[in-house]
């Protein structure tokens, strides 16, 4: 399996998309993220790994300012998307989230039809000029979400009636439909069975043709399979960041090695 993923990973990675400098996150008085610097490239899958509570999800949620919805959360440092500081006062977090889409740990389809789930984002942002235009957008998103063939005959059935794996791919399609530039995935496979996981992983690899993908995962095998770059977080710090193959085969930091070989975590 390792060999296969190595082959799949041998795709040109792109230019720099997001750069974070000295990011600190506080929840009230406790500091969840300590001085993290990261560069995230276009057309690349970047994996954040690390033990539970190490801050990788918190950091991911900084990238589209989802932490703004939590009252006690405070972020310092700079995060630039295409050179523009996303925490600048002039940036509307709502617009930002349209550019930086997000897929969550648990599939969370809205209690609407499959079609309306996918059409939600395009409708809000006015991406479709007409009904037939919207139909096209929805179909394209569902095809990119690798779920079109399974749902094309029941687009108007409720999205909550799909299986767990289908729901997660629907959520990915929904995120893709707003044409984001970056796709953040917070443990997208942790609620899925192995077959659904394999389908989603395959999909992630296809998605990087169009987006920068950042994925938080608990599974090191998953990180090794889908990502080109890996960042290892421990206790709120970014311990090591580099090319996936190198992190897994030749880690520089002893803590990384301990985690990968299962001694801490």
């Amino acid at each position: 399996m390792k060999d296969m993923s190595q082959i799949a990973n041998a795709v040109e990675t792109g230019t720099n998309k997001i750069s974070a400098r000295d990011v600190n996150v506080f929840y009230g008085d406790s500091q969840a993220i300590k001085g993290v610097d990261v560069e995230i490239s276009n057309n690349t899958v970047t994996a954040f790994i690390g033990p539970s509570g190490c801050g990788k999800s918190t950091f991911l949620r900084c990238l589209n300012r989802m932490n703004d919805t939590i009252d006690i959360c405070r972020v310092t440092g700079t995060i630039r998307l295409d050179g523009e500081d996303i925490y600048d006062k002039r940036v509307d977090p709502v617009q930002l989230r349209a550019k930086v889409g997000m897929v969550f740990q648990k599939p969370n389809p809205f209690p609407k039809s499959i079609y309306d789930n996918v059409a939600y984002g395009p409708r809000i942002h006015g991406l479709a000029r007409s009904k037939s235009d919207l139909d096209e957008v929805v179909e394209r998103a569902l095809r990119r979400g690798a779920i079109w063939n399974e749902v094309k005959d029941r687009l108007y059935a409720p999205g909550t009636g799909l299986s767990g794996g289908q729901q997660q791919r629907l959520c990915i399609a929904r995120a893709v439909a707003t044409e984001p530039e970056v796709l953040l995935m917070d443990e997208p496979c942790s609620a899925l069975d192995p077959i659904a996981t394999a389908q989603v992983e395959e999909l992630i690899d296809e998605l990087r043709e169009n987006f920068a993908v950042v994925i938080v995962t608990h599974s090191m095998q998953q990180a090794a399979r889908v990502s080109q770059n890996t960042a290892f977080f421990h206790l709120g710090e970014l311990v090591e960041y580099g090319e996936t193959g190198q992190i897994f085969t030749n880690p520089q930091d002893p803590r990384t090695e301990s985690y990968i070989t299962g001694r801490i975590g």
């Binding site: 989230r97 969550f104 648990k106 969370n108 389809p109 809205f110 995120a175």
Partner: peptide
């Protein structure tokens, strides 16, 4: 569930869009 609100915010919806539509 909060996850539905998160899902909507994550797609770039405002708070009132989220309330009205989700």
């Amino acid at each position: 569930p909060q996850s539905l609100r998160d899902g909507s915010y994550g797609l770039g919806a405002t708070q009132s869009e989220t309330v009205r539509q989700v």
